[in-house]
Amino acid sequence: MAAQLRLTRRDLKAMALSLPGALFLLFFLFLPLVTIVIYSFWRSENYTMIADWNLDNYITLLTTRTYLTFIFRSLVMSLSVSFICLVYSWPVAYFIARYGGRYRLILVLLTAAPFFTGIILRVTAMQQILGPIGVLNMFLTNMGLAPLKLLMYTNYATALGLVYLWIPFMVLAIYLSLLTFDFKLLDAAMINGAGPLRAFIEVTWPLNWIGTCIGLALVFIPTFAATITPKFLGGVNGALYGNILAHQFGATGTWALGSAMGVVLFAISSLFVYIIFKTVNLNRAGYTGKLDGE
């Protein structure tokens, strides 16, 4: 009885300290998200919301070919960007975690630091490299070569820009996962006859799959909602779903439709995260070296 009482007091203390921030998040993050869910069933006129419950916004969104095309384009874009980040970040994070030694912290900080300089300034920098008067094309022109049309206001430029923006998250997620990974397990696998490739596929990869999933989610979500990168690197035909979403809140003031688009954006992102984490097998991804029965 006394023990139970003490437990509740602990609970209360924990609550008292962690509740203010939790309430703040519920009020200023989740309530607004609920608000746009509600608004997505309303109607908007001249920048005001009218409580006229209907499904028109969703019907418009899911039957208009243009909108579906934008969703599809964004999906292809963010899947490709996540994949590129994944493939590139693994060897890099692996190297830092395993062989970085006492330089580990500085090596990983150097990959993460650019993230903090802000999206708009990084896109500015990228445009100065890739744009028509960017250094890459000016260099090619000065050498008497043809400018690289492939990266001048195209979807490829957007993809490169998005990799540039978000690869720090992927490297960091995989690195943090590998930090808690016991590399001795690899030696054990090798001693038992596994080649390096097999040891990687059967030990390293599955045991770090959760960290990898977090990295995938952290890259997929912002790239699927990207607006600035496609606007400044993608050119006139490079608009993505995020751009037409943002458009509803800017020029046209069609807030209700914009809210529905936001809900769809959130739904697709959540679905992606759900599918990714469905692949996590806790028996194989849990605590390093503490599995029994395997």
Binding site: T35, I221, F224, G242, A246
Partner: peptide, 12 residues
Amino acid sequence: PGLLIGISTLMF
């Protein structure tokens, strides 16, 4: 995503 935080807090 930041875009969603932006528009939802705007509306709210």
